[in-house]
Design a protein around this nucleic acid. Sequence first.
DNA 1: AGGGATGTTAGAGA
DNA 2: GTCTCTAACATCCC
Length: 265
Amino acid sequence: VPELPEVEIFTRNLARWAGGQTLSRLEVVDPRIWGAPCRPEELEGREVIGAYRRAKYTVLDLGSWALVLHYRMTGKPVLDDGDVRRKVRLRLWFSEGTRVLFDDARCLGQAWILQCANVDSFLDARGLGPDAWPGRRDGAWWAARFNGVRAPIKAALLDQKRVAGVGNIGASEACYRAALDPRRPASSLTLAEWTAVAEGVLGWVDDTLAHELGDEIHFVTAGGEGCFRVYGRAGEPCPRCARVVERFVQRGRSTFWCPRCQGSR
DNA sequence: AGGGATGTTAGAGA
DNA sequence: GTCTCTAACATCCC
């Protein structure tokens, strides 16, 4: 379930598992993982300096070179516990015996090997806007970022060029927290409503991180849906007003909302 | 069997 | 050029 909070946790996990160790071997189990031609052996023998997140990307810093990961729909880094049923695309062997897998059922995830000096320009070339978190942006900042956008607010929140990190789950959850009709044109929101969006997005990330950090095993196996308020809950009662949560399709993606407390105006 | 799935991007059309 | 939307990617699960 990789949106910003999950990628943040994936990245922290990688830093914790591998930080300070040397990457002794980078095993390419499925070469479709590569987003561009590269030489995996370039990274072997290098020490992991750390890992950081930008939007939904993880950058594993190996000094002068870096391994950049994007998980798309189903990718995730996991400790290799010896189970043989995983859909492994990469296996990273570290000097103290730790083995980390890039596990990806659908194989839509991608990886790149870049010189560290080129990572920023690589990410910038993807057209990523500012990260939705951890910066505490106010309503005026959000209003300015979405100035002139006529698309429905829920669809607009998915545009990584405006603000990076919000995915299809986060967009529904943020609209719900902001009590906003997901069909409202972004350009029609008042400053007060943008303030609610700002708080909704931050609240969604903060709560998701807190939930998943509190129980890492639950997260890895169950996807963290335990803290969804409307996503995936069509037919269930709204946590705020008990009206039935509904689902509809916007731009080919599911939107979940409560038609009563997210009433249009 | 068929439909839907957390993301991104190329390409078409307005 | 800008904005918007669809299809495609590959595989699994309900």
